[in-house]
Amino acid sequence: MASSEIDQKFLGKLARLVESENPLLSSVLYKILGLSINLSSQLITARKQRRQDGSSGNPPLDLHLHIVWLSREGLLLLDQYVLPSATLKKNVELKILAYKLLASFYHIIVLFHNTPPVTTIGTNTPEGQSTSSVANASDKGKRVAKGNDTYDHGASRSISEGGPVGPPPGFGPQSPTAFLMKPGDYLPLAQQCFKEAIQLAEQHLWGSHSLRLSVKTEYAAFLYECVHDAEASRRLAKETISEVYEATEGIDNDMFNDACELVTVLGKMMKRGLGSNNTLRSKGHGTSNSGSQGTPRIEQIEAQAPVTAPPGMI
């Protein structure tokens, strides 16, 4: 996701690269980097919470609100500062990274804020919470800072009792994140952003380039988690691994290690939802890993111990 270590590496690298000619863009990229690091820890916490509570477990409301707010801020920074400045003529990687991050932030919005909900990860619908949990969490997430401004989004309280009251007649229940972003179905927009990012990556980056792999790895996760098209996710993972093996371009040690890590994740995604005899099942985990210098090979990947998905891949 926007919280992956590979995307963070490119954010830092590109922020340094443009620092002399465009200090404003450089400072915004550093801000997105800091936001991404913060978001990474929040997503890891949400993933741990989900594992502890089971597949239907929801993160605490204050954590949920923080994740949506950080994602919204990332989208605003990209839209207002990065995308207008990113051109293919000046820096191909910056342009592709901007589109990839745009898709990635929308991926998180779909997971935690979408209406109608596409997963059980978030608490973005009143049906996913009890009345008491909403009341208790309203105070926890009452103040969200944005720069030097502070917004009060506490629940409406009746004058006589001082407790939370329901919405006016005819308006129906409101999502607890509605004050941060307009409720709606962001799934088509997220999917379109991924397709644009992939198109750019395929046109301008070779098959083993870690930024290209980052785009396709997250899109495979998006297809499985949000679109619920397991077959398309497995097919994309398989095709992406084939592109890595067919790439003839040389890569440095750092990019090689990143490629090995992502190929490992893609190898697990190839088997996600399949049983040991390749028959469909509800959830699955494959194993594969990385090896030595050059383009990663299947034998090298399988020789090492399994690794976990990059931070934020929930």
Rank of each mutant, 00 (worst) to 15 (best):
T295D: 08
T248I: 12
K90E: 15
A98G: 02
F179T: 05
E246W: 07
G154E: 12
L200C: 09
Q199E: 15
I44C: 06
A237Q: 07
H153K: 06
G294R: 14
D185Q: 14
A178K: 00
F179Q: 08
I314Q: 09
N58Q: 13
G291I: 11
A15E: 15
H107V: 07
L14S: 06
L24C: 08
A46P: 02
L17I: 05
R281L: 12
Y81P: 03
G286S: 03
P173T: 02
C226K: 08
P311A: 04
H64K: 00
D258A: 09
E202V: 07
Q42E: 07
E261M: 09
P173G: 01
T131F: 12
D62Y: 01
F105A: 01
D79A: 13
Y99Q: 14
Y151H: 14
A145M: 14
A190C: 07
P306Y: 02
D149Y: 03
L24P: 04
L180E: 00
F10W: 07
D152F: 05
L274Q: 00
E161L: 10
Q191C: 05
L266I: 04
T120R: 07
V244D: 00
R72V: 01
T287N: 07
E239Q: 14
V244F: 04
Q199S: 13
N136P: 01
A103E: 15
Q49I: 15
L213C: 08
F179G: 06
P126K: 07
A178R: 05
W69N: 05
M255Y: 08
S288Q: 13
L24K: 10
E246M: 10
A237K: 02
G166L: 09
N114D: 08
A309H: 12
P164G: 14
I159L: 06
S282A: 08
P59C: 00
L97M: 05
A135T: 14
A137T: 02
L70N: 01
G147T: 07
E196F: 04
E225H: 12
L70C: 00
K268F: 10
V307I: 09
R51S: 10
